[in-house]
Simulated scan of single mutants.
Amino acid sequence: MLNLHALRLFYTVARKGSTTKAAQALNMSQPAISAQIRKFEKEQGIVLFQIEGRRLRLTPLGQCLLEPLEKLFRLEAQVLERMEEERNFPKGRLRIVGNYLATSLLIPRWAALFKQSRPEVEVHIATANSRTALERLVGFEADAAVYGLADLPLPADDELCWTELYRDEFWFVVAPGHKYAGREVALGDMLAEPFIMREEGSVTRDRLMRLCRERQLDPPRIELQFNDLSGTLHAVMAGYGTTFVSSLVAGGYVERGELARVHVADVRVANTIVLCTRRQSPPDPLVREFTAIAVRHKHSPGHGL
């Protein structure tokens, strides 16, 4: 029988890079960790670490064990999570994390429809940047993550699966009375306008700055900055400046004539919205039901914030 405790000690030392850091993480003494790993190596007739001066170096076997051990401890975390959920949420729990666009515009409708058929289930929704959302999913802190691929590529992880929901675009939009409303203009002319944007680190702002770098153009002047999309769009509707925003967000405003799109020549910035979950066998019925609702109701949600 494998000594899982010793394997965990080995894995932690390998990931932390030293027994000192592993001892701090595990709240154990450094000699105790070293002794248990040596004992395990002797029992199994293997060598996991080699000492080079004052540093530890993984042997080829030690290196090969890292990936399967990571999967093993993920499965262990899933087992513990399921037992904990049964104790604390006997009727079920669903944890959804998404970027700002997802939690402000997409997930609320899906969650409401889910609760109509599953009123007894606890539903928790959290907002995070896309990278953190994916990390929470991988770390068993969430059951589903919704984000845009313009922000973070699909993970190369065979333990995750994803469903494409939308083919979104980023648009330049202005007030209907703006001189560029409904017109096609050059990117340089558009960037000369005063911009109203969300804070640094937002997906749309980062993508706009990347576009400027790709075209070797000076970035626009950010004259007003908001921490939410609603404030940004209402400032533009008031008649000052322009913004760069998801078509899912702006579509409804444009349809109602509250905003107007500016068509910028030779610029098309796409964004695919995906719902990412862990691959499980059998699939979690709550996650499967929520995913089915998201797919079934993925018509254009652009009705404003």
Rank of each mutant, 00 (worst) to 15 (best):
R207H: 07
L286R: 15
D151L: 03
V121D: 01
H299V: 11
R288I: 01
F170S: 00
G45I: 07
S300W: 06
R131N: 05
M237L: 05
P153T: 08
V267N: 03
P153M: 00
R131C: 04
A23D: 00
D218F: 07
V262F: 00
E141H: 13
S281W: 08
Y11I: 03
L286F: 15
G257A: 11
N27H: 10
K91Y: 09
F244P: 01
F290I: 13
P282Q: 13
R210M: 14
E159S: 11
A128K: 06
N27L: 02
V13N: 01
W171H: 03
V123T: 00
A6F: 05
A260M: 03
L106E: 09
G92D: 09
D151H: 12
V274H: 08
T243L: 12
L229G: 15
P194S: 14
R57Q: 11
N88A: 12
M190T: 11
G98M: 09
N129R: 11
V121A: 00
V173R: 03
E141Q: 14
V249W: 07
T204S: 15
V146T: 02
Q78H: 10
E120S: 04
G139M: 04
D168S: 13
L61I: 03
G302V: 09
G302F: 04
S29W: 01
R118K: 15
C212P: 13
V267F: 01
R74E: 12
F226W: 13
L224W: 10
E81C: 06
I196F: 10
R95F: 05
A77F: 02
S230R: 15
E214W: 08
T19M: 03
L305W: 15
F172P: 01
G45W: 03
V269I: 15
L191W: 10
V138W: 08
T232Y: 04
A142T: 00
F140I: 04
R268F: 02
V121M: 06
L187T: 10
C212E: 12
E159Q: 12
E199R: 14
R279L: 14
V97M: 12
L154W: 01
L66G: 02
V97R: 08
K179C: 10
P282L: 12
L191Y: 11
Q216G: 11
A6R: 02
L58H: 00
A145T: 02
A150C: 09
L211F: 13
S104T: 15
V79S: 14
R183W: 02
D284W: 05
E67A: 06
T103R: 12
E164F: 02
L72I: 10
L48F: 00
H263L: 01
H5F: 08
F40N: 01
E43C: 03
N3S: 11
R74P: 02
D218C: 09
A126P: 03
D143T: 00
D158E: 12
T59A: 00
G148F: 00
A144V: 08
